[in-house]
Design a protein around this nucleic acid. Structure first.
Lengths: 120, 120
DNA sequence: CTTGTTATCAACCACTTGGTTGATAACAAG
DNA sequence: CTTGTTATCAACCAAGTGGTTGATAACAAG
């Protein structure tokens, strides 16, 4: 469990039930029981899911008598978005450069004939 | 392994080694050995990681004699980005609306007194 | 105080995961 | 054909995950 923040966030959202809960919480705060209702699992299982989301910083819990309203924390999404955008942009940039290169040269698909001694 | 595409992508990127490989591949294609070099693990382990990335659609592999150049597929990132953006926007929208609501009413933190028979 | 509700903690279980070693396949070069 | 390189497959193992049941805590209401 001592993983880095990014790993925790990705890992938390790798579960469809957990993504569902995030979707539900985007509409508004909810109690554990409310979150458990749509799924065919025990409240304990949902409680565990919420702990994972909380450890990832995606969710926070407050107190209201014996209820524990769950609240979605949208900021952590930025962490992922930044990571994703960075490498997507980098990959697209690379692709663009490759494309330019291929267009600038008309033929000859053998860039490096190292020491195969092709005689004249 | 019969998970949905989104789960596979999130799950694949939940591992720091795999994210590292994506970062490396964003610079340019690489062989399995090249990808294994920086890490203190066997080539087999790296091969497994690549399979996970491939199953998630993040990576594709071609043939060059006995080498298997690995190529980053940037399109799959869109799947995540779309999902993330959707619920972030929704959560922010909700936050904005809540903020408006709180500003429009000056006091009285009891919105719903259901049947407590408050007389007159 | 007792009862019911909401939620967590603890122990357990089947399955997955990330790693290992060993064998094998595919190919290049001597 | 034999050797070396690159990579995958197969079996195994320790640790983690998602689920369960049972006990417990915290609180509201009778």
């Amino acid at each position: 469990m001592g993983a880095d923040p990014l790993s925790r966030v990705f890992s938390a959202l790798a579960d469809p039930t957990r993504r569902d809960m995030v979707a539900r919480l985007a509409v508004g705060d909810a109690t554990v029981n409310e979150l458990a209702a749509p799924y065919d699992v025990t409240v304990q299982a949902v409680s565990k899911h919420l702990r994972v989301l909380e450890d990832a910083g995606l969710v926070s819990r407050s107190r209201d008598a014996q209820r524990r309203p769950v609240h979605l924390e949208a900021e952590v999404f930025d962490l992922m978005t930044k990571w994703i955008e960075r490498y997507r942009r980098q990959a697209e940039e690379r692709y663009r450069r490759l494309d330019d290169l291929l267009q600038s040269m008309p033929d000859d698909p053998e860039p490096i004939p190292p020491q195969t001694g092709a005689p004249t």
